[in-house]
Design a protein around this nucleic acid. Structure first.
Length: 273
DNA sequence: ATGATTTCCTGTAGGC
DNA sequence: TGCCTACAGGAAATCA
């Protein structure tokens, strides 16, 4: 599922491959895949791609006509760059055909993702954009301390809340807690200051390493060119339940915490240290 | 206000 | 082998 590192991998690839491209034709194959109306869809012909931006798991593509294309990939979403003559994959909801003969496609079988066309001036008021907490890649120890303070929910559930901290999903929350040696069920207000520093370092490290590896291809995620990421091979706990911990050899467990499958090593992540 | 639960959707894994 | 059911999960909505 595309989380921060996967979206960032897509964004970096777009920067090298489609910056400056001119849109010949923009097609929405499903109206209900678009949030906030599609009245700007007819204004995109001849617009050029002038920049990209990422906030949490949201990708923003800036166009020369002051329109911003937002893409959220939910859990089964893909952004693929193909030749316009290549066959259209099943569940393609958005097509962007460029004058170079390239075509950008947003496909998403489960449709938990979406696209949006927002005038640049309205981007700060777009709900998902506006309500997002600080980006996990740049979050500071002080910000994490404020977020954890006074809350009783399990730290696992809290780190998944995009309103509080943006960009982490199920994979990277489990991996960051494993690196920080924090048990995912620990109530937030029971994590001492010392451990929050370790947590921030763990979050930054796991995100940066995954970006460098092109993201995690566990289920559906592919890079812009259709190749798989590599970081799933480096996972310490995610979907490794029943197999030995790479640090201590104890069997990795899987619990449901906050309604999500949660993977951890009961020996390495005993307490909050 | 906070937190817990339900809902959307389809491909896949597991059981029989 | 093939059918059927349960499950996966991000985020918004709904409920307590």
């Amino acid at each position: 599922m595309p989380e921060l590192p996967e979206v960032e991998t897509i964004r970096l690839a777009l920067n090298t491959l489609v910056l400056g491209e001119e849109i010949l034709s923009y097609r929405l194959l499903r109206d209900d895949f678009v949030r906030g109306g599609h009245e700007h869809a007819s204004e995109l012909a001849h617009a050029r791609i002038i920049g990209t931006q990422r906030k949490g798991k949201l990708l923003a593509i800036h166009l020369s006509n002051q329109i911003v294309l937002l893409h959220h990939f939910g859990m089964s979403g893909r952004m693929l760059l193909s030749r316009a003559s290549d066959p259209i994959p099943l569940h393609t909801h958005v097509q962007m055909i460029f004058d170079s003969g390239l075509e950008l496609r947003h496909t998403d079988p489960r449709r938990f993702g979406y696209a949006a066309l927002v005038p640049q001036t309205e981007l700060p008021t777009f709900p998902a954009w506006k309500n997002m907490g600080p980006d996990a890649l740049y979050i500071t120890p002080a910000q994490i301390r404020n977020i954890l303070a006074g809350r009783t929910r399990p730290v696992k559930a809290l780190l998944l809340d995009q309103y509080l901290i943006a960009g982490l999903g199920n994979i990277y929350v489990d991996e960051a807690l494993y690196r920080a040696r924090i048990h995912p069920a620990t109530p937030c207000n029971q994590i001492p200051t010392q451990a929050t520093k370790k947590l921030v370092r763990a979050i930054h490290a796991v995100l940066l390493e995954s970006i460098a590896a092109g993201g995690s291809s566990t289920n559906d995620y592919q890079r812009l060119d259709g190749t798989l990421g590599e970081f799933q091979n480096k996972h310490g706990v995610y979907r490794r339940h029943g197999t030995p911990c790479r640090r201590c050899g104890h069997k990795i467990e899987r619990w449901v915490i906050g309604g999500r499958g949660t993977h951890f090593c009961p020996l390495c992540q005993k307490g909050v240290n």
